[in-house]
Design a protein around this nucleic acid. Structure first.
Length: 876
RNA sequence: GGGCGCAUAGCUCAGUUGGUUAGAGCACUUCGUUUACACCGAAGGGGUCCAGGGUUCGAAUCCUUGUGCGCCCACCA
């Protein structure tokens, strides 16, 4: 079914068609792969993009990497599942919808009421979800759409409720009064990592405070003070520690305790601080250590409470101004630093200043020892997973970051005061509390209005998508859960380790007492040309879809994969995509050439046994291909995606196109080899650039490349080896011959080279190739082979094992021989050094295993040397 | 304050346990264009591998100090 191929590859005309073909084939679903029982599983769960999101380059990079791995494993015969889904992103989504409603209807969510508001959210999501999924398909992602999940769909709702109930029943989830980061505008708590710090100018007030002078930026919190703290070693204040003092305040006199605590910095301010346990995290900790009372004075609206006398009802900012002016009048302010700079905490969503508040919230205890985890806590178990290498981080340095963060982890506040999300499955009636999957039957129960932190449901993502809890019966996994969990790899951005990765690990251990994945691969951020984060507001974003329209999705994918390494940020530019588009077109034209050249062989099934190596060029290209297959496999297994693509590129362009195809033009009869090579490189390239490879494949095959089998090397190895037997390295012979000739000191330069080359066993083989070389003259300015004179023009191309000799270019014979001579001396020196080391008894005694390594090194050096000479000659 | 990363050609970056003359793409210069490909070919220029010190026969690579940049965590009362 050889189809005519256009002169230039046109991605737009092919990509959608190919994607439909893939999707229709059903092979995205591992159940349709017709694999033997013994086939191993390979599972990646797609990190669910925010449902309101549009595809950006970060997504595109994630998809490129994951699809690369998934397609590779599928070709390798794994039962490969890549499971798609989207995230409801509670706060973000609610904000988007709130903004829309405000713009369109001039109403806020309270005007609409909870039920009506949620209806609006859902109808909005109906539109956006289709968008992001469509965009993912454009990138060629081979996701199993039959298993599509959403963090807030019915199945996941059930999973979340079961999880919550199980944790509640075991006391892991508890309700408590804690100081939380409170956003007075969003009316919600924020997790520690949702708080952003900004450097801001503020006034630092020095207050007269009984016998102390204290510095503070928030004089209004004086109304909630219950203590003064000093450093334990501070001699200035030693006399006061443990005493109770009476302090004059704007609302009259009040009493505070003086405590000594290491949290106080002697050298900052006056070395003494006022303690407001209800509205400061540090103070709260001091209060806990010293059993101090806590007095709440600011409410959820950020206003002063009724216990603040005449200041009640003022916002904390207003109260500050009022109190400062009153204190000034009373002479309680010593002085003010006007230009003090401090870090202030802001809501990551709306930028409002955070108010630390004591509040009733739901928490997950990370320290509670659990029977189901063998007496260990979630934190211990999650740390163990990394320490014992049950979960491997790539690159490994992120393991440290993970562990550091886990070590300092406090109980996780999971309740959020927003409407969109998983509502907490707890009902109240009078003083009773009920936690269950459904509302109790009898009257009068009212559900907790709060919803769960979005990471609660995404933390369950690996197993909730695989059918937990239905697929977890009496502690045994069944169905998809048994088949695909733990998953093999989580691929995500490094910035999300703390938010997501850590939660997934804890949740998975709690639910099924196993890790959610074996490896965590962290990719970097995609930055713009200048190294800045891409963002809509800056207008420096590159739209991957726009790029895919212009250059093809393959080019976008390849440009994201090449030149980037795990965990490092990548700068990205349009020129890079263009370069990859050019390569893809090159591959396209290579294919066109081969398909035309070998058109008579296309229908035949080419077995390796039928391949015939006739010339050294044949052997060279096939042994290069053999190397390439091995290296590609090795690189992909080690997550060196960029390197793998580079080596593929080198083979395809520099070896195959620039050399072998040129040879094939002159020397006919390479049909089988060429078609064999084409089939192989299409397979090797397919995970990187699936569309174009599938199109080419489809032009001379009836089946899909996507489910072909990965190249098998053993037979190829045999074939290449057979040809090797009578072709020992000519480079070795060159070296030996030169050495002999020189030591005899009688051969003049010109003869040396001739003697070497023509004296070789493969005279015939070389002679044959010389014809090729001569006919290659078209691409060389002038060519004279093996003639007497000052210059030899031509080139030598050699492989480490073989005899490939073509001559191109020009070199000065004397200079060249001098150089070879020098190289040889260097080689001798190196080997002597190694030998000296080997003969040193003490050295040997000290490190016997090193000696073994050295033996190998010696070999390595020799090999490197060979390769280097090869390269030098090749370069001529 | 604690931690992590980066510094290699004009630009963007590779360089896997130390190994001989440090690579690629883009850009640049010259020449070419007889059909696989101008989204092309050939040739070429361009690097005290941030600086100082150390280990080694040998360092871009390992150790140390410093400088510059980026990120993360904590926190500034």
């Amino acid at each position: 079914m050889n189809k005519e191929l256009d002169k230039v590859y046109k991605p737009l005309e092919n990509e959608d068609k190919i994607y439909n073909k893939w999707e229709k084939s059903g092979f995205f679903n591992p159940d349709n792969l017709n694999l033997p029982e013994s086939a191993k599983n390979y599972t990646i769960i797609l990190p669910p993009p925010n449902i309101t999101a549009k595809l950006h380059l970060g997504h595109a990079a994630m998809l490129a990497i994951e699809d690369l791995l998934v397609r590779y494993k599928r070709l390798k015969g794994f039962r490969t599942l890549w499971l798609p889904g989207t995230d409801h992103a509670a706060i973000a989504t609610q904000n988007v919808v709130e903004k829309r409603i405000w713009q369109e209807q001039g109403k806020n969510r309270h005007d609409l009421g909870r039920e009506k508001f949620l209806e609006e959210v859902w109808s909005f999501l109906g539109i956006t979800q289709a968008t992001i999924l469509q965009q993912i398909k454009k990138m060629g992602a081979s996701l199993d759409w039959s298993r599509l999940a959403f963090t807030l769909d019915e199945k996941r709702q059930k999973a979340v409720r079961v999880m919550f109930k199980n944790m509640y029943d075991e006391g892991v989830i508890y309700r408590g009064e804690r100081l939380v980061n409170w956003c007075p505008r969003c009316h919600s708590t924020l997790a520690d990592d949702e708080v952003e710090y900004k450097e801001e100018k503020a006034k630092l007030y020095w207050l007269k405070y009984g016998p102390f002078v204290l510095a503070t930026t928030r004089p209004e919190t004086k109304l909630g003070d219950t203590a003064v703290a000093v450093h334990p070693g501070d001699e200035r204040y030693k006399q006061y520690v443990g005493k109770e003092l009476e302090i004059e305040g704007v609302l009259g006199k009040f009493k505070v305790k003086v405590v000594a605590d290491y949290a106080v910095d002697k050298d900052f301010g006056s070395g003494a601080i006022k303690v407001t346990p209800a509205h400061s995290f540090v103070d709260d900790e001091i209060a806990r250590r010293h059993n101090l009372a806590s007095k709440k004075i600011i409410n959820e609206d950020g206003k002063m409470m009724s216990n603040c006398g005449k200041y009640a009802g003022l916002s904390s900012r207003e109260a500050r101004a009022a109190i400062v002016s009153d204190m000034e009048e009373m002479g309680l302010i010593d002085h003010v630093d006007e230009n003090y700079v401090h870090n202030s905490a802001h809501c990551y969503r709306c930028g409002t200043v955070i108010e630390p508040l004591p509040s009733k919230q739901w928490f997950i205890s990370v320290d509670k020892k659990l029977d189901r985890l063998g007496g260990k806590s979630l934190k211990e178990k999650a740390m163990e997973a990394a320490q014992d290498k049950i979960i491997e981080f790539i690159p490994s340095r992120f393991e440290k970051r993970y562990l550091d963060w886990m070590k300092n982890l406090h109980d996780w506040c999971i309740s959020r005061q927003i409407w969109f999300g998983h509502q907490i499955p707890v009902w109240y009636k009078d003083n009773e509390i009920y936690c269950g999957l459904e509302k109790p039957k009898d009257e009068g129960w009212k559900q907790d209005p709060d919803t769960l932190d979005t990471w609660f449901s995404s933390g369950m993502w690996t197993f909730s998508t695989l059918g937990w809890p239905d697929n977890f019966v009496n502690g045994e996994k069944v169905g998809d859960l048994a088949k695909f969990h733990p998953t093999q790899l989580l691929e995500t951005g490094y910035e999300i380790i703390t938010l997501w990765v850590s939660r997934m690990i804890m949740m998975s251990y709690f639910a099924i007492n196993e890790p959610p994945f074996e490896q965590v691969y962290l990719h970097g951020m995609v930055l713009d040309k200048k190294g800045k984060k891409m963002s809509k507001s800056k207008g420096n974003g590159i739209d991957p879809l726009e790029m895919a329209e212009t250059f093809g999705a393959d080019a976008v994918r390849l440009s994201l994969l090449m030149g980037s390494t795990p965990g490092n940020d990548t700068r990205f530019s349009e020129e890079k995509i263009e370069a990859k588009r050019n390569f893809i077109n090159k591959l396209w034209n290579i294919s066109r050439f081969i398909l035309d050249y070998s058109k008579d062989e296309l229908e035949k099934n080419i077995e390796i046994q039928n391949l015939e190596i006739k010339t050294s060029a044949d052997k060279w290209i096939l042994s290069s291909l053999l190397d390439l297959i091995n290296k590609t496999e090795e690189n992909l297994e080690n997550n060196n995606f960029s390197l793998a693509a580079e080596e593929l590129n080198d083979f395809t362009w520099n070896k195959l196109a620039d050399w072998y195809l040129e040879v094939a033009k002159i020397e006919k009869g390479k049909e089988k080899i060429l078609i064999f090579i084409l089939r192989n490189i299409l397979k090797l390239w397919h995970p990187f650039i699936p569309f174009v490879t599938e199109v080419v494949w489809g032009s001379f095959n009836d089946n899909l490349l996507m489910v072909e089998t990965w190249p098998e090397v053993n037979e190829l190895k045999e074939l290449v080896k057979k040809f090797n037997d009578n072709n020992f390295s000519i480079i070795q012979n060159i070296i030996i011959a030169i050495r002999n000739a020189r030591s005899e000191n009688k051969v003049e330069p010109a003869k040396k080279l001739e003697a070497v080359i023509f004296g070789h066993d493969n005279k015939e083989c070389i002679a044959k190739n010389i014809d090729v070389i001569k006919s290659l003259k078209t691409s060389i300015s002038s060519l004279t082979v093996y003639e007497e004179g000052d210059k030899i023009e031509g080139s030598i191309m050699a492989t480490s094992q073989g005899v490939e000799i073509f001559l191109i270019g020009a070199f000065d014979r004397d200079q060249e021989l001098q150089r070879l001579h020098k190289e040889e001396e260097n080689l001798d020196k190196l080997i002597k050094i190694q030998e000296r080391k080997l003969n040193n008894d003490e050295f040997v005694k000290k490190a016997p295993e090193t000696v073994v390594a050295l033996e190998r090194d010696k070999l390595e050096i020799y090999k490197t040397e060979q390769a280097r000479i090869k390269k030098a000659i090749n370069k001529l």
